[in-house]
């Protein structure tokens, strides 16, 4: 499966949900804003949303401070 993540094409061997993708990329899910095909998905939809070949994702990492 090919995904475009933050503008870069990446290949993945198996089918993934958003949660599985974040885990594979070693990202902390609660600190990430996920945009899938130009739609923002809240954390409660990470486990139920399956990714498809050709999907475009923006993964925006927040760091603390304000």
């Amino acid at each position: 499966m090919r995904l475009k993540i933050n503008g870069q094409l990446q290949n993945f061997a198996q089918e993934l949900t958003i949660s599985q993708l974040l885990e594979q990329l070693q990202l902390v899910p609660k600190q990430i804003v996920v945009e899938l095909n130009r739609e923002i998905l809240t954390a409660d939809r990470h486990t139920t949303t399956r990714l498809n070949d050709g999907d475009t994702l923006e993964l925006i990492q927040f760091v603390g401070g304000g």
Binding site: K30, V33, I40, L41
Partner: peptide
């Protein structure tokens, strides 16, 4: 979004943009 903790920032941003795109 002018919060402090990374988790709060991401929570506010994703929930707000999902509700009010």
């Amino acid at each position: 979004e002018a919060l402090d903790a990374a988790e709060q920032k991401a929570m506010l941003t994703s929930n707000f943009l999902q509700k009010f795109p």
